[in-house]
């Protein structure tokens, strides 16, 4: 099992242009990031393309890993999630609404993954549970399905500004709970 420190060391070495470290980082983390890309996109071919894009970004950005203060797996997962969501949004623009519904993947749970400590997941789940159920669902959909304010407003059948106000208030509540 690769530890957090191992991953961090690999990222730092990749930042110096170390290809062997890059290969090792890929071996240690690509299954998790592929899982994330598949979860967001719900399509293997698209997820494969995006995974390639993700590791190209990792190679190009590893030298700045320290700049933002993220933990190593969060840094990797954020790159993966953002790239997958960007791709999903491009696909959605090309899709009809019916196809869009099809594409939204089931939030299926899988076996334990190395990346995120169970305690962090529990903490987030507890704090999301303190929000109104629809608001927590909106935050999940924004993160994992890349849904925009407009899409969320349509889904929950409320005006756009109402959606935005809801979600912004929920974010503040969530932050208060998470820092408690």
């Amino acid at each position: 099992m690769t530890t957090r420190d191992d991953i961090e060391t690999l990222i730092l070495r990749v930042g110096t242009g170390d290809r062997a470290a890059f290969r090792a980082l890929y071996a240690a983390t690509s299954a998790k990031l592929f899982g994330v890309a598949l979860r967001v996109l719900g399509d293997r071919a698209e997820a494969e393309e995006v995974l390639q894009e993700i590791y190209v970004k990792i190679w190009h950005n590893a030298a700045r890993y320290n700049v933002n203060g993220l933990s190593p797996m969060t840094w990797l997962i954020t790159i993966a999630r953002n790239a997958a969501v960007d791709r999903l949004r491009k696909l959605r623009r090309a899709d009809s609404p019916a196809e869009l519904q099809e594409r939204i993947a089931d939030p299926g749970a899988g076996p334990e993954a190395m990346a995120i400590a169970a305690s962090e997941r529990a903490r987030l789940a507890t704090c999301l549970a303190e929000l109104a159920a629809t608001h927590a669902e909106a935050i999940r959909r924004a993160y994992l399905e890349g849904e925009t304010y407009a899409e969320l407003a349509a889904r929950f059948d409320v005006p756009l500004n109402t959606m935005r106000t809801w979600l912004r208030r929920s974010l503040l509540k969530l932050r208060e709970c998470l820092t408690r």
Partner: peptide, 17 residues
């Protein structure tokens, strides 16, 4: 936020590419 939201991927199973 990035740390907290990344926890939402915690139950996503790794898949070998």
């Amino acid at each position: 936020w990035a740390e907290d939201f990344a926890a939402m991927t915690g139950d996503i199973a790794p898949q070998q590419p």
